[in-house]
């Protein structure tokens, strides 16, 4: 580069400007890629998304949300459970046969891997418990319904 082209800029400043431009372009490209991926890179879909765009019976999907309070029902065979996953706007009934993780409880998060049945019941092959960002000692258990609601919203945000 000639001196006239750089208009007397010190090489140090020239490098700084060039690098800043390159960095801005790079970060912009990265953010764009991440934004474009926002749906594909999601680990699970919320009940409202599943209800709005019902997947085919052969399409494996992950359903994630909160286990509705009082919805876990053990079936007579002892290994099958039925429960409802909700996100505040939609609800999906789920059936699962197998061993559930220790942290799978009502009012907490869950991710169910499986497929949507023709009868509208989601048949899960695998259950994962999802924790929220709150760390609370056992003594502070017994939160009010209002607190649980707020926590549901915080987890699903």
């Amino acid at each position: 580069m000639t001196d006239s082209a750089t208009r007397g800029l010190k090489p140090k400043h020239q490098r700084l400007v060039l690098l800043s431009l390159a960095l801005v372009a790079l970060i912009g490209a990265g953010l764009l890629a991440a934004w474009a991926l926002r749906n594909q890179a999601s680990y699970f879909y919320l009940p409202s998304e599943i209800v709005a765009h019902a997947p085919g019976p052969d399409q494996g999907v992950r359903l994630g949300g909160m286990v509705e309070m009082g919805s876990i029902k053990e079936q007579p065979d002892g290994t099958t459970i039925h429960f409802v996953v909700e996100d505040g706007t939609a609800k999906v009934p789920v059936s699962f046969t197998g061993i559930v993780p220790a942290l799978f409880v009502e009012g907490s998060g869950v991710v169910a891997d499986g497929r949507m049945g023709a009868d509208g019941v989601f048949v899960a092959e695998e259950l994962l418990a999802k924790h929220d960002e709150n760390y609370v000692p056992k003594e502070l258990e017994g939160m009010s319904q209002e607190q649980v609601r707020r926590q549901v919203e915080a987890t699903l945000e």
Binding site: G78, T79, G98, I99, V100, P101, A102, F104
Partner: peptide, 8 residues
């Protein structure tokens, strides 16, 4: 059936 693991 619930999984029982010793956290410790």
């Amino acid at each position: 059936m619930r999984e029982t693991l010793d956290m410790m």
